[in-house]
Design a protein around this nucleic acid. Structure first.
Lengths: 254, 254
DNA sequence: GGCATCAATTGATTTAGATCAATCGCACGG
DNA sequence: CCGTGCGATTGATCTAAATCAATTGATGCC
């Protein structure tokens, strides 16, 4: 449904301006996966000059809206964001979920308009880097160039993996793959990879995986009855991550 | 099937070396969509110094192989290439089809290994740009940087659109979308967008669209019986491109 | 604390596409 | 010119997931 898209105001007026003491990229635990990774102190400082740390987004609040001018690139600090497009029938189609340390809105660097929506799934903090400033910095700093390419390339890989699991038609496999992907990304952030709370609802997961929400729900139930996970609403525990991986990795033929 | 992957030698020894007179980027009709687009004459000449124009690939011949070191980026001059991965059951999963003017193997710029296979679907000419040389040129030439980002971004968009049509489950719609996408890309190359020969077989299309080859075949038959296309094997005519577009664009609810 | 609301689960039925199984038709080599 | 073989088509059946429809459970609000 598009109600979010039309009903919720786009994030606008900043509350904090420049990065303030105590909240710099140097301090940030997510530096290693973020844009300024690899920059020396001096370069990082000029990068920081461009970074705007905004007030938090509330759940359901839009970070940006498809069709509007894209003037910035965004890096998540905490919380989570889903990106989606709206299909001709007016249905939301979820394209990606973003976790802290991930960068979105890169189309702002090349195109001039967003081609999708981005909305917070929970209270969310982020940094905003104006595209014109970033575009000026990139040619001057080799590590920034490399990191940018690495990030875009990673997104491309993720998107292709997603296409891949779509083409495998078994619902339970898509679900298992989805959970393991989340676990992997959480592990990379030193968060528990076996117990976590989903910030998205069943409908979002269904849309992301190309299924209906009923099928997702049944999938969770089935994985639970098989003892592979414990699922109580949004609280998920992976009881047998190895078996889950085996399910996705090796064939289900036997 | 993986037989291609193991049965066919990787393209290796070059036949032509440096770009020769008469075959330069300046002459190439595809310059506008290729990497050196936007470079001034001088910059383009130093770009050309890096370009290797290789002997043609035969149908079925591999351009590169997943797992092997990625030392170059490739630009298609004519013919076509499919890229694919091999799933745990050993089945080929087609990720993309590349047409003249398109660039592949960009992961060579960031990673050090190919993560997928690329194979010629017909006799195919291509240019090879060694990654190290390109990586050296990029920081020095702003238009090259911008073009690189534009190309990667376009690939990301394409991959997301692909995920999107996977999530729409109706087979005939996927097929119609596929045909229109091909038509669009051909039109961009000033080739007929209504009559063309598919260089890939039904199995490849099926894999790309996440369907079985029987379903693809039935889809073609159905679109033909509806008078939207004419399909005789690989020869395709779009009889009602507008209706096809309506099918994909607007809903099928009625 | 109880009720309203919405998310999630579970059940019954339908259906699109997968799967299994023949042909068909065209290109190629003898 | 006629087989041979592979790609494509067509047909019959089966099945996983969509759809339709309750029901249950959690969350927040009065």
């Amino acid at each position: 449904m598009i109600q979010n898209a039309v009903g919720t105001p786009v994030s606008r007026v900043p509350e904090g301006g420049r990065a303030r003491a105590g909240v710099t990229c140097g301090d940030c635990g997510l530096l290693a996966m973020c844009l300024p990774h690899g920059l020396d102190r001096k370069a990082r400082e000029s990068f920081e000059q461009c970074v705007r740390r905004r007030r938090p987004l509330q759940r359901g609040e839009m970070l940006y809206v498809a069709g509007r001018p894209a003037h910035s690139v965004y890096a998540l600090r905490c919380g989570s964001i889903k990106s989606f497009v709206v299909d001709p029938e007016g249905e939301e189609v979820v394209q990606a979920f973003y976790l802290p340390g991930e960068v979105l809105g890169l189309e702002g660097l090349v195109g001039d308009r967003h081609d999708h929506f981005a909305v917070a799934l929970e209270p969310t903090l982020y940094c905003e880097i104006p595209a014109h400033a970033l575009a000026e910095l990139v040619p001057r700093h080799l590590p920034l160039q490399r990191q940018l390419m690495r990030i875009v390339n990673r997104q491309l890989g993720e998107s292709r993996r997603q296409s891949f699991i779509y083409s495998r038609r078994e619902a339970r496999l898509r679900l298992a793959t989805f959970l393991l992907e989340l676990a992997r990304r959480r592990a990379a952030r030193r968060l528990s990879s076996t117990r976590f709370r989903l910030s998205m609802d069943r409908r979002d997961i269904a849309s992301y995986l190309g299924l209906t929400l009923e099928t997702v729900s049944r999938g969770f139930s089935r994985l639970q009855s098989e003892g592979l996970i414990e699922s109580r609403g949004k609280a998920i525990t992976l009881l047998q991550p190895r078996s889950l991986a085996a399910l996705c990795g090796v064939g289900d033929h036997e």
